[in-house]
């Protein structure tokens, strides 16, 4: 039971392309705009235009398609299941029946609905994957902090919030080692993790969870003392060793995304939704 051997946090693929070298803030805002657009798209034409953008980005960022979609594999069965649910269960009063078998009947409305939600999920997934493939976690948190900075004026502690995320990411690896030790220790005491029915398996998790949480809280107390002893005061008057800079590429990328959004919004308004 080697649970913690191959932990990968994020799937950053290092590179020196235009997409990789964009300022993280540009990429976060662009991804947010694209995700928002995707939530409103209801026509095949808009998805077709979107597909061109995705292919263009994948080519510019030189991401191998197999790599980009590898995260999709475990989700595929559920995606097919979701599509089938819509096909057979979704219907509108004026829908035409395409196939009928036993108690199930598929309508064209169900088919379109299934297609639309599957495409929405696929595109949303691809946008977030491209963001995490081309941006390291460090620059993502840096970008997020910088984007949240203006909200300080209305009382949002942006530096502190980003600090919690950095602590979370840092402690995943520390706690993973701890978890490994706990599991080995409990196996040595005779806890069988991979045997038994559902209830026995659930029960065998208790001797892992209690020490894991208690150790985590002990570490938290130590870290609190350590940070307070060094007079951590959050974001007040803090400067950064590396500051982010927006360049001409970011300007172009921003303009391009704005034009693209305008096009998509135009399509959303003009083309009637398929369902």
């Amino acid at each position: 039971m080697e649970l913690t051997k191959n932990i990968t946090l994020g799937v950053y693929l290092p590179g020196e392309t235009y997409i990789h070298n964009l300022d993280p803030r540009t990429k976060i805002i662009a991804a947010a705009i694209l995700i928002t657009l995707l939530l409103f798209i209801k026509s095949y034409l808009a998805y077709a235009i979107f597909l061109f953008l995705i292919i263009a980005i994948l080519v510019i960022a030189t991401i191998p398609p197999g790599y980009a979609f590898s995260g999709l594999k475990p989700m595929l069965p559920i995606l097919v299941l979701m599509w089938l649910f819509q096909l057979f269960l979704y219907s509108t009063p004026d829908a035409e029946v395409i196939v009928s078998w036993w108690i199930f009947s598929a309508t064209d409305a169900g088919l379109h609905m299934g297609n639309l939600i599957s495409m929405r999920v696929l595109f949303l997934f691809t946008v977030t994957t491209i963001l995490t493939l081309t941006t390291s976690i460090v620059s993502l948190t840096d970008g997020l902090e910088s984007l949240l900075n203006p909200l300080k004026k209305i009382g949002l502690p942006s530096q502190e919030l980003v600090m919690t995320m950095i602590i979370a990411l840092r402690f995943v690896l520390i706690l993973a080692e701890e978890l490994d030790k706990i599991i080995k220790a409990q196996m040595a005491r005779g806890v069988a993790f991979d045997r038994g029915n559902f209830i026995q398996k659930t029960k065998s998790l208790f001797p892992v969870f209690l020490p894991l949480f208690i150790n985590a809280f002990k570490r938290a107390e130590e870290l609190i003392v350590a940070m307070e002893a060094r007079s951590y005061t959050g974001g007040k008057g803090r400067t950064k060793m590396k500051t982010l800079h927006m360049g001409r590429v970011d300007l172009f990328a921003g303009l391009f995304i704005l034009l693209f959004s305008a096009l998509i919004i135009y399509v959303i308004l003009i083309v009637p939704p398929v369902i």
Partner: peptide, 17 residues
């Protein structure tokens, strides 16, 4: 800050393992 961070870490850890 610290407790939210560490609880968040446990949540992520439960997910990836």
């Amino acid at each position: 800050i610290v407790i939210s961070g560490i609880l968040g870490a446990i949540s992520i850890l439960l997910g990836i393992t």
